[in-house]
Amino acid sequence: MEKKKPVTQDSFPFIASAPSPTVPVPPGPIPAPPPAAPRNEVALTIDGKTARVPEGSTLLEACKTQGIDTPTLCYLENLNPVNVCRVCVVELEGARTLVPACSRRVENGMVVRTDNERVRLSRRMVLEFLASSVDVSTAPELQSYLERYGGQPERYGPAAPAAGEPEAGPAGVHAAPDGLTAATVAQPVKIDNDLYVRDYGKCILCYKCVQACGEEAQNTFAIAVAGRGFDSRISTEFSVPLPDSACVYCGNCIGVCPTGALMFKSEYDMREAGNWKESEQQRTDTICPYCGVGCTLTLHVQDNQIVKATSPLDQEVTRGHLCIKGRFGWQFIRGKDKKKSS
């Protein structure tokens, strides 16, 4: 049997090579990273004009350089495009179908049309589909697109009576339509915690909250898309309430929601009471007071009270994402006994 070696300093050579506690700071300015290699340019034609954009850009970015305002709903600059809403579609010569501008990369010689009859029809229909099946009352952007494209969501008939809580039965089963009404995703609001409210009757299934909860921001995976087809919905496992789920209340899902389906409880209560006045609110940027990361907070202030906290999407540190403290931890300011709570 092998003899056991005695444990000495030599058994752990890395201890000797560890840096000393006082690391010397090199003199001179902080070195800058080497300049990025210039990206090749790609030339394409958008609505008859030649556009030159860096290789790897999306059609959406290329359209932007031409001053074209492309509608988007499921797109957000701090998330990977999932191209599911299809409101950004454009016509690409040579392609059988329209292509999503948000995710399609530019190629040399592409000929793109962004505002012809075919594109306008698809965009109008997508917006009508959403507005006729989802409550878009807190989605001003979607409403403005609807107006731009002349959508008439009411032409599909009056809304069918709400079906109540969506059930997790087998996928691929539905009741036959009555030939009069239009099916919607209307359902009761979910209020199961003090921080935020989930009103899935306003959900357009843009997948952004799932991305933000999952690997693109929080890595918590408390919610996912469940069901299939029109019965698809955002859900926890077995639809358990949020407090029983993996949710850590970072609120990043609220931060990315484009329709107000996910909302601060405080905002929801104020809206219910008719006190929510967005036009009167001031936005002030500050730094989160909690930890050393130094996230930028945008405080939304109404009547000298903070009513919600967000972070700018283009902020280097946060990319718009926060944690529970930065997102919700400002209520102590409104506490009755400030000394006690600070």
């Binding site: 191209n83 599911v84 809403c85 299809r86 409101v87 698809s122 229909m125 997508v126 589909f129 959403l130 006729s132 099946s133 599909y156 008939g157 996928a171 691929g172 089963v173 539905h174 036959a176 339509p177 009555d178 030939g179 009069l180 009404t181 239009a182 099916a183 357009i204 299934l205 898309v225 069901g227 299939r228 087809g229 029109f230 019965d231 698809s232």
Partner: peptide, 28 residues
């Protein structure tokens, strides 16, 4: 029409809602 409504995966709006509206318009 019912088949496509049932079998749409639900990912993109044109198909998710379109298959529903198609079935409704047909039954109308």
């Amino acid at each position: 029409a019912a088949f496509f409504r049932d079998e749409s995966c639900g990912q993109c709006v044109p198909c998710r809602v379109g298959t529903v509206r198609q079935e409704e318009a047909l039954s109308r």
